[in-house]
Nucleic acid binder design. Structure first.
Lengths: 127, 127
DNA sequence: CGTAGTCGATTACGTGTGTAAACGATGGAG
DNA sequence: CTCCATCGTTTACACACGTAATCGACTACG
């Protein structure tokens, strides 16, 4: 019984694209997912089906039968995914500290005016 | 002629560990790199040699003969690597905007007091 | 001078990933 | 009822990655 809390299986980049589609709107059929992601990436429906299967195996998406076909929905929250992914990067590249990442983005001119304003507001809220 | 500016070959996670050793101090021999990275990861010297070869193939590190053995040094700057990697993440997860990343880190309590202070200082400098 | 150790290069092998075709069931059109 | 369009599932395959043993060359010790 219940070891479902899940082994946090890694989601690959291609799989992530599928997750994004599902996070945007769900449940979706495989065909609908393809409509969202196939064109920009030049994928075929078959590819999307494979990715969906793998995501189901990884317990990252759930299936719900709808007549003959299945509907797919995310089983993990976007926040969780985004959280572990950014944490991984910050750990790997910046020794777990967020400030160096921020400094790097600043130096690389990756911060827009809007970004700066927004971050300023967030900072104020944090204090 | 000259397509050396390099195909921006991706550096894998294991390879990145080797790069870190070289960024910290270089040039190093394969054995010296192993001294830095083998123990924490349970790698053998053979593994490090393979990773070094692959990095040489990817033009990410340079070799310089030193008598019988080779000395390895990074051919790409840490800043460049860190830059493209963080950019990739921000693009993939936050639509290219840094502010949402920051917001996420804030919400996840991934920001220490020091981080906040440091970022505040950076912000002030940016304005 | 031969032999043991060491170095980089070559080869190996299992797994994950990207990408997809083939197959089998099934539901809807005629 | 029969056949075709669709599903999801199974199988495929090349390449990247993690991890390593082996091989051929060379050096240094004896």
């Amino acid at each position: 019984m219940a070891e479902e809390p899940d082994t946090p299986e890694r989601i690959s980049e291609a799989e992530h694209a599928v997750m994004e589609a599902l996070w945007q709107r769900s449940p979706l059929t495989a065909t609908e997912v393809c409509e969202q992601v196939c064109a920009p990436r030049g994928w075929s429906l078959a590819t999307v089906k494979t990715l969906l299967s793998r995501l189901v195996a990884k317990q990252a998406v759930a299936t719900e039968p709808d007549g003959k076909r299945f509907l797919y929905s995310p089983r993990i929250a976007r926040e969780a995914y985004v959280g572990t992914e950014s944490r991984r990067l910050v750990d790997r590249l910046f020794g777990g500290r967020a400030a160096p990442l921020f400094a790097h983005l600043a130096e690389a001119d990756a911060l827009s005016e809007d970004d700066i304003a927004e971050i300023e507001a967030l900072l104020k809220a944090l204090k």
